[in-house]
Design a protein around this nucleic acid. Sequence first.
RNA 1: GGGCGGGUAGCUCAGCUGGGAGAGCAUCGGCCUUACAAGCCGAGGGUCACAGGUUCGAGCCCUGUUCCGCCCACCA
Length: 893
Amino acid sequence: MTRIQNQETADEKTVLTKGYEFTAVERKWYDFWQDAKHFRATMDDGKGSFSIVIPPPNVTGVLHVGHALNNTLQDILIRFKRMDGLNTVWVPGTDHAGIATQNVVERQLAQEKISRHDIGRRKFVERVWQWKEESGGQIINQLKRLGCSCDWERERFTMDEGLSRAVREVFTRLYHEGLIYRGDYIINWCPRCHTALADLEVEHEATDGKLYHIRYPYTSGDGYLVVATTRPETMLGDTAVAVHPADERFTDLPEKAVRLPLTERVIPIVFDTHVEREFGTGALKVTPAHDLNDFEISRRHDLPALKVMDDNGVMNQDAGAYAGLDRFACRRKVVADLEALGLLEKVEPYQHGVGHCYRCQTIVEPSLSKQWFVSVKPLAEKAITAVKNGETRIHPKSWENTYFDWMYNIRDWCISRQIWWGHQIPAWTCDDCGEILVSTTDPDTCTACTSRALTQETDVLDTWFSSALWPFSTLGWPENTKELATFYPTSALITSFDILFFWVARMMMMGIHFMGCAPFKDVYLHALVRDADGQKMSKSKGNVLDPLLVMDKYGTDALRFTMTAFAAQGRDVRLSEDRIEGYRHFINKIWNAARFALLHLEDGDRATTAAPGSLPLQHRWILSRLNLTVAEVRRSLDDFRFNDAAHAAYQFVWHELCDWYLEWIKPALYGDDQEAKGVTRSVLLAALEDVLKLLHPMIPFVTEEIWHALPGDRTSIMIEPFPRVLDERNDPAAEECVTLLVGIITGIRNIRSETGIHPSAGIEAGIICHDPDRRALIAEHASAIRDMTRTETLNLVSDGERPKGTASYIYNDIEIFVALEGVIDIAQEMEKMRREKEKIELQVGKISNKLANEKFLANAPADIIAKEQEKHDLFAAKLAKIDEGLARLAELR
RNA sequence: GGGCGGGUAGCUCAGCUGGGAGAGCAUCGGCCUUACAAGCCGAGGGUCACAGGUUCGAGCCCUGUUCCGCCCACCA
């Protein structure tokens, strides 16, 4: 077992085991970070700041893959900015999730065969708090397992004292500003949850239903008007029939009223342009108490509203003979009765959208009710402006349209809920005079009549009301805190697009209204996590990947890196175990690269501080590549292109550092040249340190573990400065040179592989290169070429006869030969060359055409033309080489 | 009905301001080479959905067609 360095054991280094044992490592470092207070926010003067508030998960929730993605991305940013020297804070917390949590506790009660009404409001709410205490820590601990570096001392809960105070303050202010009002309106009622729902909380699902054509007889004679409806049971609440004023079919109505079947009530016929002439029969039954449009028509024509259902979705006294029937039973009976009376003209199948409760999937009932609303239009305007003028940037930008569209068409927000778990609305009604008092503190007496008989509103607020205040309520508002001054507006909000309206839009409105500026500089909307086939993960489909099990099996870093690598903007993340397993290989690769380095590194070794220009080629090259990678990772993270950051780091580590650099420096590390060895170790250490820091935000655990195994005093990688771009490390010449050597080495390996020379067999190779500069370079690095190709003799010639019994490979204008023991298959060799020749000729042809095109020469920028010319020359030289080779082979035949 | 995203290698997807089509996985061949077989070396594989257009030049820009996915919506 490895141990953490501390005062007593300062000389004891972490030793890397053969395989990466993540379970113990993860626990060890997370505890260490917390003990060392590395997550704690800093508010130093003179530093820039970077802040994030967490999208608060439901307090009783369990970590799912969506959380894993969301919080991994946030942790990456906050770790990156923290290392980069900014004042940072990541404010964590949980949401009380009104309806969802109440439902859970109600289900628990149901198992005990009691309802919330049996125990009463006070006891019920106590019971929910108790449940919150029991299970509330769960998701927080799971976030910790994910490695989240939140400032846990600032953990908040939407119903804690401070946030409740903010809620009251906001409600009171909005009420007195006239932006909160109470009124009768059609809302969406969930007959199971027994509460009103906001429009957003209703999910419309295409459902196969029926369209019933019903005859409404005129009061006298045999004539009738036919109306079409999908919900015949609501006819019991009809108070009119509406037709379009310009509809010629209804210009000569025999009378302006009909008899409502089954009730014998007489209802008027009204003319309203809302009616779609093409739909159904062109006549619309008007049920003001159970349909939003009908309600609006009723207002225009001063029609009464008649509620025919109660809160359980059961027909009430006003439904006459149908009272006591469930709404769906009532529908069947109404249809049967109409048919018996010969008033059902026809029934046709009809697919339409039916609203379901987003919490329990019960079909919602539009219902007339007295509720509290926020008048959001004025708030929405400013929220639109903030995005329009760039105060808040939404990424990916394509979401801006959706945001605008919703904001422009926004309707008043119903914020009262008839449940018990939540912020009770701070409004009191005077029992004596009916005065409504709204106040941040509980009032004693009525301000109108001084009566002390005040009754508090029993409704609670929509959960999203308190979430809307999250960016400033968690930083201490309404107090004027240093936190607000330092961290508001927050830097970035990272959340899933599916709560853009529920949450983001409302935070924008509230933040601007109460803080004077938008709550975020950047909003990054990430996609949904789906399964490998693109299906939404759901328990019923059984395709849910449990991030906790994934972490158990593959390690947290593997999960995090997979999430990061797949988090491309605007695309869903398709996750499967295979993919996570794949990226676990990457974690392992880093681990093994570090183990290799540690085989050679010595206690006194330090990362190089030498001028890069003075170093041998391989070192200049790796530092140059590293520098470009640093630039790319920084740029990508700043642009929320997490996948690009992951891929840049992956590419560098695996295919540059491991595949080439580590192989290249082996001879030096295993050799006797002490100076070369020392330089090599110092560069190796420098590259390794930087790459670990670069990767730390994405894969914090394995990088910290390796960090402590490196020579020198190490506190924690998470407080090391994030690598900066160093211009002096850029070395295009070295990169060009290595590209050449890699081309030659690959050529020799290709010949070996194609001709079946055993990998361990030594060979003799020859290189013909006419260019003297490059010939000198090749000569200089001949030993590296030999080492990486297992070549015993490398003959470098300026020109010459192709030796007999060799296979060849053309790399640009360089020809490579490998001697073969047996006789080569000349025909096969020639065939290979001809295929290559065809390809090159195609390319040369294209480029020649381009260069011969006067318009191209006239219009294309000079650098592009030069590049094309260069390419042309290169291909031409290669072509010449191939021709030479073919001629020689032809002679041999 | 309105809007958004997508169609690129067998699969999953990158491809940011237009300038020689990429990655991972999978496939094929060869390797236990002293960090790693969870590995190494090499190879094959694409009419960038279709049709037009703009441009010297289009996977990328414009128009249309088509197929998938999602979101919003007050045609009962």
